[in-house]
């Protein structure tokens, strides 16, 4: 804990610096797209939040498996502390996607496989957080939530491959495709800077939240001790 505490100011500083660089590159340097014009700039906030929403849930599922198998309390705390960040990122991905869809596709929302599975991810996040809030005993809550995280992780490959498995209004994959990206460099650079910034942001907030969760558990056990006299 003390080690992560020493890293924290650096992580926060790196987040701020990367965000500033990404915003400058994405909003001022990057050119408009030949088809989508200036709306292409929504990509620099849409793609990082969509990526994080899935990466965070993958982390939570992994931590949940570790918590279930090895009973490691830190894994439990990491999963719990990640959830609100992931839910926020999913909401941001959905909102920025709607703001991009309206001018380009002609609609804020359609029920295609990509958008629907992404909305499902958002509700899984909410259900996960509700489960933690509903059960008082952290050990029991942790077990139930871990199972939900593992069950919910089935949705991750569905989100990723939805644009390949079914006809969707959402475009297909453009960065991770065989034969190289279909996005040209001037768009890719700000996108990757922003993905880096969002990732460091996640770890910064995660450490704050894990810190707080550890303190909250100590408070809980102290109060139980006091109640016993």
């Amino acid at each position: 804990m003390r080690v992560s505490g020493a890293f924290l100011p650096w992580l926060a500083a790196i987040t701020a610096a990367l965000l500033a660089w990404g915003l400058y590159d994405g909003l001022l340097v990057a050119p408009p797209d030949y088809q989508q014009g200036e709306t292409v700039r929504i990509m620099y906030v849409h793609v990082p939040s969509a990526y994080l929403s899935m990466m965070i849930f993958g982390t939570m599922a992994f931590a949940s498996a570790v918590a279930l198998i090895w009973r490691h309390p830190v894994a439990d705390i990491a999963a719990k502390a990640s959830a609100p960040i992931g839910a926020g990122m999913t909401a941001a991905a959905l909102a920025t996607g709607m703001l991009w869809g309206q001018p380009m596709w002609g609609t804020f929302w359609v029920w295609d496989a990509r958008l629907t599975s992404m909305l499902l991810l958002f509700f899984i996040y909410l259900g996960y957080m509700a489960l933690w809030a509903a059960i008082d005993d952290p050990e029991r809550a942790g077990k139930a939530a871990a199972i939900l995280a593992l069950v919910g992780s089935v949705n991750l490959p569905i989100i990723h491959f939805s644009v390949e498995w079914w006809n969707t209004l959402h475009q297909g994959p453009s960065v991770l495709v065989s034969g190289g990206s279909t996005i040209e460099g001037p768009f890719l650079r700000p996108m990757f800077i922003m993905i880096g910034a969002y990732t460091v942001f996640y770890f910064t907030v995660l450490i704050w939240r894990m810190h707080q969760e550890i303190i909250a558990r100590r408070i809980r056990s102290l109060r139980l001790l006091q109640a016993q006299g």
């Binding site: 050119p31 797209d33 596709w105 475009q171 279909t182």
Partner: peptide, 17 residues
């Protein structure tokens, strides 16, 4: 009754085009 645009995955700078 409704027409939506489906764009592809290609992004190219406008001035290059």
């Amino acid at each position: 009754t409704e027409v939506l645009a489906k764009h592809d995955e290609t992004y190219i700078p406008a001035d290059v085009v």
